[in-house]
Nucleic acid binder design. Structure first.
Lengths: 179, 179
DNA sequence: TTGCAATTATTAGCCTCCTAACCTTTCAAT
DNA sequence: ATTGAAAGGTTAGGAGGCTAATAATTGCAA
């Protein structure tokens, strides 16, 4: 289900009229809000086509990207869940499928018998490298309507919004991810 | 699952370095792309809190909003599915739950015995009116980091992206929605 | 008028996420 | 040493999407 379920966005004039009935409605806020969700949906739908082309789910692709980082040789389910933003239970299922497909292997930890290490297989690395050019072309095409200056301005505005939304600044513990 | 599964966004320097290994990677495109999905996720997470406060799902809230439009007295499941961007099968389930909760009623069509009309009950209208002030305050708070000029600029940039993504301009058949 | 295609709504079954509970292992405090 | 809390991974069950198939109805065309 898309984040924003409305197929057609309300016109600005409609928002103005609706604001007469609803004092709390801020038209420009609503307009920006709706366009934000809508654009995210359309971008993600484009990415879904990429994922379908390569017969992989969003979750499995993200796990493979995380394990493909040059300085990461292996990782644990808990760490992958944390970096991905899914629960550990969900990560177990993602790893199950990836392992069944021969993309990753589970390995026991020598010191702590609770922890498991997940590593991309040779086939996993090769499979991801096959997808990446298509992925980056996809991203470039999506952003192509904006020039360099507009992209920078967009990022600046989005960062301002993100700062206002960050619940607690304590989450900057882990190292930033890489593509 | 969030649209973007990475908890921490890659730093711009990481993108530069990754571009050395991947010729197709455009750093500024990736940066904008990642921030766009990330911001959409954070905004939507905020809305999820609103929905949980009022014990309603995103889908059911959208259906009630569509039926609450002043010029809409009733609508059909097919039309609601179309406007919401979900399948008719999904819409059947949403209406089932709303009907069970007394928010909407199904009514037979006088002329076409295939079609069903869905209408908000008095209780449905009242229930939605109770949520709306909280909803609009939520939206206003989310957009509060940007001033009027920045909001307009954001909408302009997002619209440019949307135009590049629109698959076919034939979809402008239905009337734009209202909040 | 009779038959066939299109449309409406629904049902059934699948997938993937989630929460809650569970078992094992580790670690720390007594 | 022992016990209890914390952490890692997994399992079980539920919610909500989706596609595909089904049943009833309509409308058009031969």
């Amino acid at each position: 289900m898309p984040l924003l379920m409305l197929k057609d966005l309300p016109q600005y004039e409609c928002l103005i009229k609706a604001a007469e009935r609803h004092p709390a409605l801020d038209p420009t806020a609503c307009e920006g809000f709706l366009h934000l969700l809508r654009t995210g949906d359309m971008v993600f739908e484009d990415i879904l086509h990429f994922l379908n082309r390569h017969n992989i789910s969003q979750g499995r692709f993200t796990v493979m990207m995380l394990l493909h980082r040059p300085w990461v040789e292996s990782s644990t389910p808990a760490s992958l869940a944390e970096e991905s933003g899914v629960t550990r239970a969900t990560m177990t299922g993602l790893i199950d499928t990836l392992e069944k497909d021969g993309m990753v292997v589970r390995e026991a930890d020598a010191n702590d018998r609770r922890t498991v290490h997940v590593r991309l297989t040779k086939q996993g690395h090769a499979s991801l490298e096959t997808m990446l050019p298509d992925y980056f072309q996809c991203v470039s095409r999506i952003m192509s309507p904006l020039n360099e200056r507009e992209r920078k301005e967009l990022v600046r505005l989005l960062q301002k919004l993100q700062e206002g939304l960050t619940p607690s600044p304590l989450n900057s513990s882990t190292q930033p991810a890489e593509v």
